[in-house]
Design a binder for these strands. Structure first.
Lengths: 345, 345
DNA sequence: CTGAAAGCGCTTACAG
DNA sequence: CTGAAAGCGCTTACAG
């Protein structure tokens, strides 16, 4: 793309030995002034600090990790970064990690959920002090193993495998779905409510679906399997699902997509098909991502405290690392956000 | 939040010595079969592999880094994760990093741009093999220092400090702005075009602003300072800017926000004020984030290859680390995306 | 207050 | 094909 390539020659970085030599002290002393781990003469401190400045010295992280037997870093296991859900998620984690003065090592799943079974795990006891897992990449087996080793792990939007006590932080999905659907049923008289579920194996999606079934049952609305659409938590997924629904000529007066991204896709498909929202078909989502208030019409949904969830999860992990304790489960309340896509003015 | 706290007891992880003992070989041999770095008898390989499985052994990363004198990890310096711009950005970086088999260490700026001047840098030669910098957190001084040390650095959406040859990958902002504004001027006859700039010090914003000035000049449209709004690349920023514009009763027939998030905010403010878009005031943005097609009306903007940019930047960094060469500058083309907010049907 | 030495868990010449 | 030993760059008892 550009004609002039750039080349580079490496320069050796300074080590603690260089600093010690320049300051005329032993490496032990250098270590002490750097870490303030033992009293050192003022004049010596001065000399060492000066040498550090001159050489622009920073201790080699790996050497330090090896010596102190901890990495001061947290590992984050994510599914493939696909939706705007990740913006608040990463913010929350980063905030907590920074507050704790730790580093953040991140690994995301391969597209297509392809599970890599290599002997060298990307993230684990060998390179982190604890793991924040928001992904189904790590199987229950491996989680259980980590738990048995006493390795700090916290789960985000996923509950602990049976037999373990791994702390987890999640949304109160059932309550959210209940509020949402009862609003649709009671206020707007909708009874033919389609559900576009999230990806296979996703716990949020599972919880939202079973709550959906419960609410229908409570209102004596028979469940029509034709109204249950298979799909992912993506815009394209929601779009495709609704296209199929329309193509199949399934009668319905409302669509509940498992998340907001899918709702955006659903709205696109409905508009293209000439359906009026919410008059003919109401649409509601879940999460309340930043996008949702801009949709046309603005989306009625459930506000999930995404950033808070990830922040708290990271804090729990820090606590687990430092004190060996954490809350077994943190269930975050959600709230109904009524806008116009449900039929409200 | 939950009554039952969880406690944990640590178990010692296995080391290469444990594996060697169990397999009845020396640690050198274990290392060789693990790294396939020298021929080993089949039967020995078998025994070692078996021991590794039993002990669930993974080499300690820090020890390995120390011995081989590289970290196999890339550092990513980001501004605070605020907008959906980061979703494709992170995807691209993660993809490249994973392809290369490296780890990703991430650090984001503190809110408010507070520059931390501590002796221990969060990311650098001491814990990574190279740095991808998408942020103004690292000052030109420090970048220059790294460059002089021959430490691999690649800049994303930011150009090299004078005197250095640090590779950078950027959008062709000028060309994008030109296409966008000429469309507004030629096709829709708009001449009172307000500009909502991005954050202070942001290069994309700077380039977009100077292109804006150039286009106006080329069309002999005098620049009205009242049409230049100070702001950030955020929805709230765009909203506030437009509110001010309206409050000041500044006549204008179009608004160009430096990015799409701000355009979303601008649309909100205009709708609240009862202005019709695009009839009374056209609105255009830059970036084409996923949100943009959902806006009301759908946003005319410039599509910037966000994911490609970050992917290529990470690839350049890998190349720099492995071959000591990279392209000095990668300028990515952008394209006009005409939707309805400009006045097109 | 300071230094010499052992040790953290690996890799890699060097011998055999 | 295999092992003993040195070394990577730090920290931390242990002596003084």
């Amino acid at each position: 793309m550009h004609p002039e390539p750039v080349a580079t020659r490496r320069v050796q970085r300074a080590t603690i030995t260089d600093v010690a030599r320049l300051a005329g002290v032993s490496i032990s002393t250098v270590s002490r002034v750097l870490n303030e781990t033992a009293p050192v003469a003022d004049e010596t401190i001065e000399r060492v600090r000066h040498a550090v400045d001159i050489l622009n010295f920073t201790p080699h992280a790996a050497a330090r990790m090896l010596a102190v037997r901890k990495t001061d870093t947290i590992g984050l296991l994510l599914p493939e970064i696909g939706s705007s859900f990740f913006v608040p998620t990463l913010r929350g984690i980063e905030a907590a990690v920074r507050e704790a003065g730790l580093d953040l090592l991140i690994f995301t799943g391969t597209p297509g959920g392809q599970r890599r079974r290599e002997w060298r795990q990307p993230l684990g006891e060998h390179n982190t002090d604890g793991l924040l897992v928001f992904s189904d990449l790590l199987e229950a087996r491996e989680l259980t193993l980590l738990f048995q080793h006493g390795f700090p792990v916290v789960l985000l939007h996923r509950s602990a495998p049976v037999g373990t006590q791994i702390p987890s932080v999640r949304f109160d999905n059932r309550s959210g779905v209940r509020k949402l659907l009862e609003h649709l049923i009671r206020e707007h008289g909708r009874r033919r409510i389609a559900f576009v579920r999230g990806p296979e194996g996703n716990e949020d999606s599972f919880a939202r679906e079973s709550a959906y079934r419960e609410v229908l049952e409570a209102h004596e609305i028979p469940l029509d399997p034709a109204l249950l659409m298979e799909n992912g938590f993506t815009e394209q997924g929601g779009e495709a699902a609704v296209q199929r629904l329309l193509a199949n000529n399934v009668a319905c007066d409302a669509i509940f997509t498992g998340d907001d991204e899918a709702a955006a896709g659903a709205l696109l498909a409905l508009r293209r098909a000439g359906k009026r929202v919410p008059e003919e078909i109401a649409v509601v989502g879940f999460d309340d991502v930043p996008l949702s208030r801009h949709l046309n019409p603005p989306l009625t949904t459930v506000r999930a405290p995404i950033e808070t969830a990830s922040y708290l999860a990271a804090r729990q992990l820090v606590r687990l690392i430092r004190n060996d304790t954490a809350d077994a489960v943190t269930l975050l309340p959600v709230e109904l956000v009524v806008r116009q896509s449900c039929g409200c003015p």
